[in-house]
Design a protein around this nucleic acid. Structure first.
Lengths: 243, 243
DNA sequence: CGGGGGTTTGAGTGAGCTCAACTATCGTGG
DNA sequence: CCACGATAGTTGAGCTCACTCAAACCCCCG
C-alpha cells in the first residue's frame, strides 16, 4: 500500500521492497489537526492512505491560499523533505488515515536506491507542474473557469487514484475552501456554483459532486490533463485526452 | 561556474568534480528564442550563466501567466528533467548565455552520486516553494502588494546570486511581463508603478530599479524571505530577516 | 528620421468584493 | 425525540479594484 504511490515511475523489485520495509506509524486525523506547519522542522513524511488533505499558506493579514490538494496515495509536502523545513501548512480536508515515515529513513533509502531518488524527484516535479497550472488558473482565468478547471483536475486525480468510477465523485471542500484554492471569495464561489447548477453542468449531493456535462465543464475550465504528469493511464472517460 | 549553482546543498569534492566534468554546450540566446516549449520532450538541461529567463504557460484563449523567473546560476525547468517533458515554455527575458547539458548525462551523474540527486531534489523543492508563494501572491494579495513582493524577491535572489549590491538592481521585465507574472494587466501595472514612484518607494532607470524605502516596500509586499530556501546567507541589507 | 516596442493617459465598465443577515443541515446531548 | 448549537450555504445591496478599449507619447535604434 505504501508502494503503490509510485505508479508514475518504474521501480525494480528491490526498490519496491525497500520502500515497503520502511518503518512507519499509522495515524487517524481529523479536519482540525495539523500534519505540518509552515516553517516547522520536518521529521516525518506523510503518505495519505485515505481521505483528502490540503496545503495552504497565509498572508500577513490573514488571507489564506490553498496551494495543493492531495488524494489517497499522495506523498504530502514532498518538496520539504529534502530541505527539512515545511514550506506550508498541511491539514486534512476530511478525516484521513496517514502513514508517517521517519524522514531520515526515506532519505537513506533514496540514497541507497537511485531509482527511488529519481521517483521522488519525479513526483516532486509533477507536484510543481500542478502548482504551475494552479498559478495559471488563479492568475489568468475567470471565476467560472477556475472552478471548472479544479472540478476536472480532482476528477481525473481521483479516478487515477482508483477512488471513483462514475460521473459523481467525492468533493471534500467547503465553498470557502474552494474559494481559498481558486483565489475567490466564498460568496462568489457560491454564486458561481449556482450558475453551474442552473446551466445543468453539475449537481451536488452533500460532500459529493456529479458532473452532468463533462464536455462543457472541461471546455469552460480550459482543462487538458497533460500537466498532471500521468503517463499513459487508461482514462475511462477520456477526460482531456484529445487535443 | 556550472558548480556554484549548488550553493544550497553540501556537496563533497567528488560530486563537484562530477558536475564540473559534465559535457555541455554554450549558447547565446536573445529574447525571441525558446529554450523549451511546453510539452516538448526535454533532451538538455539548461543552466543560466548570465541574464534572466522566465517560464510561462498560456490559457486556451491566449492569456499568459509567467510562472517563474530565473537568475544567473539557476537550473531552468528543473522539474521537467526527471519526467522528460517540459511543463511550460522557457524563454530568455534578456539576452542570455546558457550551458546545455545532455539530460541523460545529468541523470547518470544523479544516479551515481546520491548527493547530487539530493541537491537536485532540494533545488526542485525550493522552486516549488517559490511557486507556492507566487500562488499566494497572485491569489490573495492586492495589486500593489503583489508588485512589491516580486520586487523584494528579485532583489534578494539577485543579491544571493552575486549580481547586485546596492539598492538598485536589474529589472529585466517590461510592464506587460510584470503583469503576466502577477496576474494583472499591463495598464494596471503601469498605474500601480506610478503610485509606487509617487509615494517615494522606488524609481526606475531604464531596465533597472532603485528601491528608496526598503522597509515600506517589504512591508507592503508582505515579504519574508524564508520561502526562498536560502539557508543562512549573509544578507547585507537584511531584507526580510526579522520576524 | 522613421519605425516599433514600451509606456502613459483617459473614460467607461464590470467582475468580483464587502458586509450583513438569513436559512439549511447535521450531529450532539438532554 | 427534540432542542440546540455549530457549521455551511444562500441572498441582497452597494461598492471598488482592476479590466477594456483606444489613442497618444516616448525613446531607442537602425
Amino acid at each position: 500500500m505504501v508502494s503503490k504511490l509510485q505508479r508514475r515511475s518504474v521501480l525494480v523489485q528491490a526498490e519496491c521492497a525497500a520502500l515497503l520495509s520502511l518503518p512507519y506509524r499509522l495515524a487517524d486525523l481529523d479536519r482540525t489537526s495539523f500534519i505540518a506547519r509552515e516553517g516547522d522542522r520536518v521529521t516525518h513524511c506523510a503518505v495519505l492512505l485515505s481521505g483528502f488533505a490540503y496545503c495552504h499558506k497565509m498572508t500577513g493579514d490573514g488571507a489564506r491560499q490553498i496551494v495543493s490538494i492531495h488524494v489517497r496515495g499522495d506523498l504530502l509536502d514532498l518538496q520539504s523533505y529534502a530541505a527539512g523545513l515545511a514550506a506550508y501548512n498541511v491539514q486534512p480536508l476530511s478525516s484521513v488515515q496517514a502513514a508517517f515515515i521517519p524522514r531520515t529513513a526515506l532519505l537513506e533509502v533514496a540514497k541507497a536506491f537511485p531509482g527511488i531518488a529519481r521517483a521522488l524527484w519525479e513526483d516532486a516535479g509533477a507536484n510543481a507542474s500542478i502548482l504551475a497550472e494552479w498559478l495559471l488558473n488563479v492568475g489568468r482565468r475567470a471565476a467560472r473557469s477556475r472552478i471548472c478547471h479544479l472540478l476536472c483536475e480532482l476528477a481525473v486525480r481521483q479516478e487515477q487514484a482508483g477512488i471513483c468510477s462514475g460521473p459523481d465523485y467525492d468533493w471534500p471542500m467547503t465553498q470557502e475552501q474552494l474559494g481559498d484554492a481558486t483565489g475567490l471569495t466564498s460568496v462568489h464561489v457560491n454564486r458561481t456554483m449556482q450558475g453551474l447548477r442552473k446551466d445543468g453542468l453539475l449537481e451536488t449531493i452533500g460532500r459529493r459532486v456529479r458532473v452532468l456535462d463533462w464536455v462543457r465543464v472541461k471546455d469552460e475550465g480550459d482543462f487538458a490533463a497533460g500537466y498532471l504528469g500521468l503517463t499513459a493511464l487508461p482514462e475511462r472517460r477520456a477526460l482531456g485526452t484529445e487535443a
